[in-house]
Design a protein around this nucleic acid. Structure first.
Lengths: 193, 193
DNA sequence: CCCTTTTCACCTAGGTGGTAAGAT
DNA sequence: ATCTTACCACCTAGGTGAAAAGGG
C-alpha cells in the first residue's frame, strides 16, 4: 500500500472520524519478516499527535494552515490486531491488515475505537511485542518490542473532507465508495489505486 | 438456542454441506460458567459419527431409513473458536457462538472447514481445554479438558434438504432465508424461533 | 463562519433455499 | 432413482461520501 499512501500524503491525507467509528482508507497493512517462527508476538497500533497544533483548511489556497494550539490530547488507546497473540510463523506468511481499526472523535467512546481530535495531525505507529511467558519477563519487557513508524501514513483527522482532491482519490480507490464514481477521469479507478 | 435445537431435532435436523462450506443453522452456541477467570482456555468443536450407517429419506413415510453401512470416515478435524486462546473471564462474560464454523463434503477441503459425509448422522461436541504453559504441562494434558455433548444438536448432513418441514423451519428462523418467507403460517417467524 | 451530526442511496461482502442440470 | 453441483434472486450486515440540518 506504500505507493497509495504516498499519493494521499502528497495531497495531505485526511481521515474521517465519526461518533460511531470510521475505518481508515487506505488501510494500514504491513508485511513482516525476521520473526522467530516459533515465538509468540502481539501486534498493536497507536496514534501519536505529530505536533501540538490545531489545523484549518484554507479553501482559497487549497492548503492546511495552523489555527492555534492543539486541544487537550484525547485518551491514549492502543488497538491490538485481532489475531494477537500469534506465532511468528503466522504473522510472516501473509500481509497483516488493520482494516478493522476504527477512528472516532467521541471522547467517551465505549467500543474500543481509537479516539482522535478532529483537525489535528496524527502519525500511526506499529508495535511488535514479543510475548515472553518466562518468570523474569517483567525485567526484560522493555527490550521485547519494536516500534515502526511510516511517515507517509500520517494524516489529519476530520469530520468531513476538506480537500476535494482527497475526496476524489478516496472515491476512486475505496471499493465501498464505488457508488460515487462518475465518468470523470478524476475519480475513476486506474493505475493510481 | 436449546429450544430451537429441540424443535429441529424433533423433525430430525438436517444440515447442508457444500463444496465451498456452509454454516450451521441453528448456530451452536453456549453459555459457560465455572471457569477460572485468570486461566487461559481454548474452545473447540468436532463432529463424531453417531453410528456407522448411511441414511436415506423415504418421502412417502417422511422418515429417515438406514440405507446400509457408512462410508469411510471423513478426515477428522477440529474447529478452534476464533477467540481462542482467551481468559476464563472473557469466555464467561457472554455467549460463545460458533457461527463461523462451516461444513463441507469436500474431502480435499483446503479452508479448514469441517468435513462430513453426506447422508450420515453426526453429533457435535464442544471441548474446553485449559492452557497450561508450565513445564510439566504434557504430563497433565489429559486432565486439562472437558468435553460436552448436547444430544439435541445431532443432525444428518445433506447436500439438499429432504424433509420439507425442516426447510420451512429453516426459512422461518434463519434471517438470511427471509427472502423465501411467504404468507403461509408454516414459514412465518413466530414464537417458535 | 466553521465545524459536526444525522440520514440517505449506493455500494461490497457474503449467507439463504430454489431450481435445473449434471453425475452415478 | 438418488444424490450432487452450479447458478440465481433475495436477503443480512455493514462500509462509502453527499447533502442537509444542527451547533457554537
Amino acid at each position: 500500500m506504500q505507493s497509495l499512501w504516498r499519493q494521499f500524503d502528497q495531497l495531505s491525507t485526511e481521515m474521517i472520524v465519526t461518533k460511531a467509528g470510521r475505518r481508515m482508507f487506505p488501510t494500514f497493512q504491513v508485511h513482516i519478516s525476521g520473526m522467530d517462527p516459533a515465538a509468540e508476538y502481539v501486534l498493536l497500533m497507536d496514534f501519536i499527535p505529530v505536533d501540538d497544533k490545531r489545523y484549518r483548511y484554507a479553501f482559497h489556497s487549497s492548503s492546511w494552515l495552523v489555527a492555534g494550539r492543539g486541544d487537550i490530547a484525547a485518551p491514549g488507546r492502543v488497538h491490538f490486531h485481532p489475531d494477537s497473540p500469534a506465532r511468528g510463523s503466522q504473522w510472516i506468511k501473509q500481509t497483516v491488515s488493520f482494516d478493522r481499526l476504527k477512528l472516532t472523535n467521541n471522547l467517551l467512546d465505549d467500543n474500543g475505537h481509537m479516539i482522535l481530535n478532529s483537525m489535528h495531525r496524527y502519525q500511526p505507529r506499529l508495535h511488535v511485542v514479543l510475548v515472553d511467558r518466562s518468570r523474569n519477563s517483567q525485567r526484560f519487557a522493555h527490550r521485547n518490542f519494536c516500534t515502526f513508524s511510516f511517515p507517509e501514513t500520517r494524516f489529519i483527522a476530520v469530520t468531513a473532507y476538506q480537500n476535494h482532491r482527497i475526496t476524489q482519490l478516496k472515491i476512486a480507490c475505496n471499493p465501498f465508495a464505488k457508488g460515487f464514481r462518475t465518468a470523470d477521469s478524476e475519480n475513476r479507478p486506474s493505475a493510481q489505486c
